[in-house]
Design a protein around this nucleic acid. Sequence first.
DNA 1: TTTAGGG
DNA 2: CCCTAAA
Length: 630
Amino acid sequence: MKFDLSMEMDDSHGTMVNKSEENDFEKKGTSDPVVYQLVRVEGDGTLVPATEDDVLQFEHFLHNEKVDLPPIEDADHVEEFFNNDCMLLKKPDLEDGSSKLETVEAHTQKLGANLEENILQSLDDSLSPPSDFRIHSQHSDKLLTEQGANVTRQDNASTETTKSTVLNDSCCAEKYKADACSRSVCDTSTDPSVSGVNSSMPDFSILRGEVCLDDLTIRELQEAFRATFGRQTNVKDKIWLKRRITMGLTNSYDVPSSGCVVKDYKIVGKDAKNDMSDMDERAKTGLRATSVVIYPGNEGDSPSSSYYQSEDQEDSSKRVPIHNDEPQGNLLGEQCTDKRTRKPTKRYIEELSDIETHDSTVKNSSPAKRPAHDELLMNPRVAPFNETGSLGTIYPTRKDTFGGFSVHVPYVSRMRRGRPRKDFISFAVTIYDKGPSVEPKGIQPSVEMILVKDGDKGNHLRKVPEVPLKVSSENEHAEAVDSKGVRNLQAKVCSAVSKPKIKHGLTRKHHRAWTLSEVVKLVDGVARYGAGKWSEIRKLSFASYSYRTSVDLKDKWRNLIRATQTQLPAQKDGACPRKTNPSIIPIPPSILLRVKELHELQSQGGGFTAPVKFSGQDGKVLQGKGSGFL
DNA sequence: TTTAGGG
DNA sequence: CCCTAAA
């Protein structure tokens, strides 16, 4: 399946910028390729490939996350461009897009919009009847807006075939009005006249009666915002507006991103039924909507405030990036409530990131309220976003998958720092092999070496967790989806294998079970030099065990202490609290006892660490396993 | 670097 | 085992 996303920017001369991005990965048949294409729409409505200039011209919008939306006058459509669903257009041929594009043009001219967005879906050519430029709406349940519907219907009457009327109708409406999520049909048609934005007094009536926020236009939403908060907003992010309004009305953060029906200033209900059916339909058809979301950059915000989230699999609940605060920054008060003030530790950040990646319900106490279709919201920037890193590495985007579709989304504050995920390898390999998620021990060191190789710091990579290159490698697990990615991966593996010297930088230490003799040595060492003198113990007692570091000794000792506190009493009771693992040789109780004695002694000793003499004869005590001495 | 402690 | 902070 192939999609064309055509982003059209109307410069009031019908000039549209057009960019095509063919992802190499997507040319593989295994995954559903998604092709986003920018096209220039000529005056006669035909689509022509973008020129370099066009691309450059439009790149601004695609590459610059902090593109300033407000300066664009009458930018409703710009906003929608950035926030709304893409449409999927069944597009047999570009030449046949004329009728549809007339629609676009008429609309854009009428509204003076600057940008339009479409996804032109060129399905299997065989599926597409010629010269019938049909538009497939993924959210056919959307309400037509006044503007969109009007324009659309006119165009339908004139240019569309009967076959495509319905689809086109809803789709165009959606195109102009669509919010990023599919939403319920609300039978309350909004009065277009309410969108008098600049009246001095807020139009409170907009919230009177039953109003489905999803059906409101940007202006209406702004008005509703004004009525809710008593001030104006220039935000054109519908999602944001809706959430804000809903939050304001419900005085709660736990609001769905869509489907809210406002009745007399209160949220009276939400209707996710249609969303579900919509999802089902989408699942059946294999269509998956993507949306172009470009947020106003808010660099200073918490890492979670702006990112493009995508869930790997279908049933994950989706999260809307609701934290995009008003670009104007006049929402500081509300803003702080959204964001943590304390700067968390790195680890905390990392875990937070993970949480938000895996569990979208962190701030969402009621996942059920969040329709799954919210996935449509969060996605993808369509831009290829190819920036060349300082070292010539291109990793500004990552590839997210949506039910088989692959899209590029930029990394935004989601860089995982620190060591790679444990499940990274299994994840990648699972995707690649479509096999069970068994961790292939064999390739693990190799892949880890990739990380080392990618990091310019070599074996100091651990110490340099923020090396961008490493991040790219880590976060690019999704890139392993297709065979080319894996091939690259393997190539890296090969090249990395050739440089084993840097290996020990990142690789996780091979787990070596502690042998009994090692434990004995450790206990002996502790008894001799005192707990805490790990380096000393290591030097003197573990000279022949080069793989045991002082930290290892410390950790092991700690584990022994724990074992002492748990295992030992249990054994006294005679009942094994935990079923003994036969594969694990239990530490002899005598040793545990000794550990316990030593621990108690040294902890009581209050830092007194000179049991040297005391334990000088421990050696034989140990050997005898008697511990009667202690 | 080493130690302590959380994960 | 890993990671980090604090010595």
